[in-house]
Simulated assay, not measured.
Amino acid sequence: MKDYIIDITLSSTKKQKPQSDQLGFGRVFTDHMFMMDYTEGKGWHDPRIVPYQPITLDPAAMVFHYGQSVFEGLKSYLTKDERILLFRPERNMQRLNLSNDRLCIPQIDEKLVLAALKQLITIDRDWIPTAEGTSLYIRPFIISTEPYLGVSPSKSYRFMIILSPVGSYYKEGIHPVKIAVESEFVRAVLGGTGTAKTAGNYASSLKAQEEASEKGYSQVLWLDGLEKKYIEEVGSMNVFFKINGEVITPALNGSILEGVTRNSIIQLLEHWDIPVVERKISIDEIYQAYSNNLLEEAFGTGTAAVISPIGEFFWRDEKLVINNGQTGQLSKKLYDTLTGIQNGTEPDPFGWVVEVK
């Protein structure tokens, strides 16, 4: 691989690291971060690793006014023999550039960013937790920085990567979560930004999420924006249903984020010769399967939660309790296998794991 010159400034002080049993999600950050800037006519420049620090922006920076920003999420693991592993990081870099294209943000050099990420993780390797269910969460993101109030793509940007030691995304962990089906608000529509990982998608989901939380539900299940009939995804996860022995997940339709974990689960199921299909599926079909005792399992997939079994859906004032609210056998097998591949305790027949050297 080409050698990239990345300036490194190490922190003179070290933060206190939390105990593994005290880790939540995304509230503690490591000693260092990666930064790189873009200027029109110059391109991306000055890649550097620096002490974790606040950033200063002009009040007119366009990210504050027009939301031109994208981000990614992936994880790093430390094996029992002290090797640092990443899970399919090239897919995240590819998706970041797809989001960039949709938001009119200049393309990044994926190999440069991956090389910088490996250096950053190596420097902060002592922050990688080793307790079961923990990992080092990686958040690359890009914001528009030009101080200008006109509505147009920015002419300057900043790319950053920050790291956070994390435990389970949901307080329930691998235990089933309860999901409310959202029938009023809309997350994304065909032609919008649903396929991009951009901040605005998540801001528009907060109202529904807040209302669901008040009712005791962890997340919302989004329906399509036109007919409010077809299932799309959960707020932070793609979603799968096991119906009468077959696993079904909504087909990518231009308003659903193409999850790296989603893709991995489909490949795992095919590897095990378990029937899996990608197609349109309506909430009415799920209800009928539930009524006929054919809805065997449901689970979400995503980088943050990995596999999250769903124990209950709330729809039209009715509770649909799945598998007696217990984790299903397939959900557990998928979780154990995928996390095992990620942390190096299970064989990796797909070549997904990348070692940081």
Rank of each mutant, 00 (worst) to 15 (best):
P54N: 10
I49H: 02
V50F: 06
Y52F: 15
H65A: 11
P18N: 11
H32F: 12
M35C: 07
G41F: 05
F71P: 03
K42H: 14
D37Y: 07
H45R: 12
I49V: 14
A61H: 06
D58H: 15
G67C: 09
Y52K: 08
E72W: 03
E72G: 09
F71I: 08
P54H: 15
E40Y: 05
R48N: 08
V28K: 06
S20R: 01
V28M: 06
G41S: 10
M62P: 00
D21K: 14
I49R: 00
Y52W: 12
P18D: 07
F29D: 06
G73D: 07
H65V: 12
I49K: 02
A61G: 09
D21Q: 14
H65N: 03
K42S: 14
K17F: 02
G43E: 10
A60R: 07
F25Q: 10
K75I: 01
Q19N: 10
T30K: 09
D58N: 15
I49G: 05
G24R: 02
D46W: 00
V70S: 10
G67F: 07
V63A: 12
S69A: 10
P51Q: 07
Q16I: 15
A61M: 02
Q19E: 14
L57R: 07
D37T: 12
E72F: 01
V70W: 00
S76Q: 02
Q53D: 05
K17T: 13
M33P: 02
Y66I: 11
Y38S: 02
Q53L: 01
V70N: 13
T56R: 03
V50C: 05
M35Y: 00
P59S: 14
K17Q: 15
T30E: 01
K75L: 02
E72I: 10
P18G: 08
G73I: 09
Q16P: 00
L78T: 05
V70D: 03
I55F: 06
M35E: 14
A61E: 02
H45G: 01
G26P: 01
G41V: 05
G26S: 08
G73P: 04
K42L: 11
Q53W: 00
M35R: 11
L57I: 13
L57G: 13
D21Y: 13
P59E: 14
K17N: 08
P59M: 08
D46L: 05
L57E: 09
H65C: 10
L74P: 01
K15N: 13
L57W: 11
P47W: 03
E40T: 15
K75M: 02
L74W: 04
F29Q: 08
I55N: 04
V50W: 02
T30C: 13
G41T: 11
T30Y: 10
R27S: 15
V28Q: 06
M35V: 15
H65P: 03
G73F: 08
K75G: 01
F29I: 10
M62K: 15
M35Q: 13
D46A: 15
G41I: 11
G73T: 06
